[in-house]
Amino acid sequence: MRTEEHSMRAFDASPMPAYGVPDAQHPRALRAEHRVEVAPHLPSFEFSVSGLARSDQFAAWHDTFAPILELTEINDSTSEFHGAQVLWDLGSLVFAQIITDELAFTSLPGHVRREPLDHWAITLLLSGRNRTDSERRTFSGGPGEVQIHPFGRPFAGDISKSEMLMLFVPRDFSHETAVALSSAELSKLGTGMGSLFSDYLIGVANRLPLLTQDDLPGLVAATRAMILACVSPSTENIEDAAEPITGVLLERARKIVQTHLFDPRLGVELVRRELGVSRTRLYNLFEPFGGVMHYIQHRRLLGAHSALADSDDHRLILRIAEEHGFSDGAEFSRAFKREFGYSPSEVRKGGQGAVPLPRDRSLVECAAGERLSVLLRRLQG
């Protein structure tokens, strides 16, 4: 068994998102005269049982969870057991991405616990299902559902072949989160706020490889606010979590736009209705992008640009314009040139083959010191 510390590499044969950037883009690969001081990336630790002898694979996986859980293999007749994880050290929190084959689990009674751990695990299943039995209740979970398990309480259960995200929260993280998690432990968050927290965890997983130590205090503060807002959703807690909630809502709104991009009914009301917010809230969300309709037009123009640049797509420019919501060819040409600085026919002729990066007006207009945060928000799209 071998555990290694890496900042930006993923373990082999994992379906998790790619971690890191090519070496040529890393500051270490730059010539000395071009180097700039950058904060170190957040430390991550990877482990996989791949490559071990079959007789050792589950034992190694078992040992990684030994301080908190007793694991039992359900099917030991398979030719291989799969288990892999990436752990992110967030200082006062630990974030994990885990892939595992089916197994049974039992929490450890206090008198046999290997370590004095009394944390909560907030788990989001991305695939698979699990069941948990406790003294008070039995509950099961599936993809998209957030569950809360306390390692200081007795419970047992089983899990199928699964991929999951886990956030480990110590009891001394804050008094407020301890109260909130205690009231919700051994259950799943089935409310709309629970769904928001699910999206938040996925967003954290996607952005962690890009963050540095300088980003850590803000990430921890946002996570604390989201726990309070989603587990114990009082008015005050929701107000404190306004910024991360806005990020989650914006990501949802973008997905709605992309799903209905070719729908002629796509507009403010459709997005507002599917997102479940007021018109004022929706306008505030899209204000940095010039408004809802401007964002919709921008996405449609990007789609049209891709089609025009495709050498295998021989449709008339007007037909592509109509598919992307423009019934008037002249208006399409004017909007296209305003957005990209050249005409649709120039793209079709091969003069502008590459799809341009989205022009985020807030990035152009904001102060230089604020551009990093704008770029990070844009990575959600």
Results as ranks from 00 to 15, higher is better:
residue 307 A to N: 13
residue 304 A to R: 15
residue 279 R to Q: 11
residue 299 R to W: 07
residue 301 L to Q: 01
residue 312 D to T: 13
residue 298 H to Y: 09
residue 284 N to E: 07
residue 295 Y to K: 12
residue 306 S to F: 10
residue 300 R to H: 10
residue 284 N to T: 04
residue 313 D to R: 03
residue 296 I to E: 04
residue 314 H to V: 02
residue 297 Q to P: 09
residue 304 A to K: 14
residue 293 M to W: 05
residue 293 M to T: 13
residue 313 D to V: 12
residue 287 E to L: 02
residue 280 T to W: 05
residue 296 I to K: 14
residue 310 D to H: 08
residue 310 D to Q: 00
residue 286 F to W: 00
residue 282 L to K: 02
residue 301 L to W: 04
residue 311 S to R: 03
residue 305 H to P: 15
residue 293 M to H: 14
residue 314 H to Y: 05
residue 285 L to F: 05
residue 313 D to C: 13
residue 281 R to Y: 07
residue 295 Y to H: 04
residue 279 R to A: 11
residue 300 R to W: 10
residue 287 E to V: 01
residue 287 E to T: 01
residue 305 H to V: 04
residue 283 Y to C: 09
residue 292 V to H: 11
residue 313 D to N: 11
residue 285 L to S: 05
residue 301 L to G: 12
residue 278 S to M: 03
residue 307 A to I: 04
residue 303 G to A: 08
residue 287 E to I: 01
residue 292 V to K: 11
residue 288 P to K: 00
residue 287 E to P: 06
residue 288 P to S: 00
residue 309 A to G: 15
residue 306 S to G: 13
residue 305 H to F: 00
residue 294 H to A: 09
residue 282 L to T: 00
residue 305 H to N: 00
residue 303 G to R: 14
residue 284 N to C: 04
residue 300 R to G: 06
residue 310 D to W: 07
residue 293 M to V: 11
residue 283 Y to W: 03
residue 302 L to M: 13
residue 314 H to N: 15
residue 296 I to P: 10
residue 306 S to V: 09
residue 279 R to M: 02
residue 303 G to H: 04
residue 294 H to Q: 14
residue 278 S to I: 08
residue 308 L to D: 01
residue 281 R to M: 09
residue 289 F to W: 05
residue 302 L to H: 07
residue 311 S to L: 02
residue 295 Y to Q: 14
residue 298 H to R: 15
residue 309 A to W: 03
residue 311 S to A: 10
residue 296 I to M: 01
residue 308 L to A: 05
residue 305 H to G: 15
residue 303 G to C: 12
residue 281 R to D: 10
residue 301 L to I: 09
residue 292 V to Y: 08
residue 309 A to E: 08
residue 310 D to I: 12
residue 296 I to N: 10
residue 296 I to G: 01
residue 282 L to H: 09
residue 312 D to R: 08
residue 295 Y to L: 13
residue 310 D to V: 04
residue 299 R to S: 13
residue 295 Y to M: 12
residue 291 G to K: 03
residue 285 L to M: 08
residue 298 H to A: 15
residue 283 Y to D: 12
residue 292 V to M: 00
residue 279 R to S: 11
residue 278 S to H: 01
residue 295 Y to V: 04
residue 296 I to S: 03
residue 285 L to G: 02
residue 293 M to C: 06
residue 299 R to N: 13
residue 313 D to L: 02
residue 297 Q to N: 14
residue 293 M to F: 07
residue 284 N to Y: 06
residue 298 H to T: 09
residue 281 R to E: 12
residue 308 L to K: 15
residue 295 Y to C: 00
residue 302 L to I: 01
residue 281 R to W: 06
residue 285 L to W: 07
residue 304 A to G: 14
residue 315 R to M: 02
residue 282 L to S: 05
residue 305 H to S: 02
residue 299 R to G: 10
residue 286 F to Y: 00
residue 289 F to H: 13
residue 309 A to M: 12
residue 312 D to I: 05
residue 282 L to E: 05
residue 294 H to T: 14
residue 300 R to V: 04
residue 305 H to L: 01
residue 283 Y to L: 11
residue 279 R to T: 11
residue 309 A to Y: 05
residue 298 H to W: 08
residue 301 L to R: 00
residue 286 F to N: 02
residue 298 H to D: 14
residue 298 H to S: 15
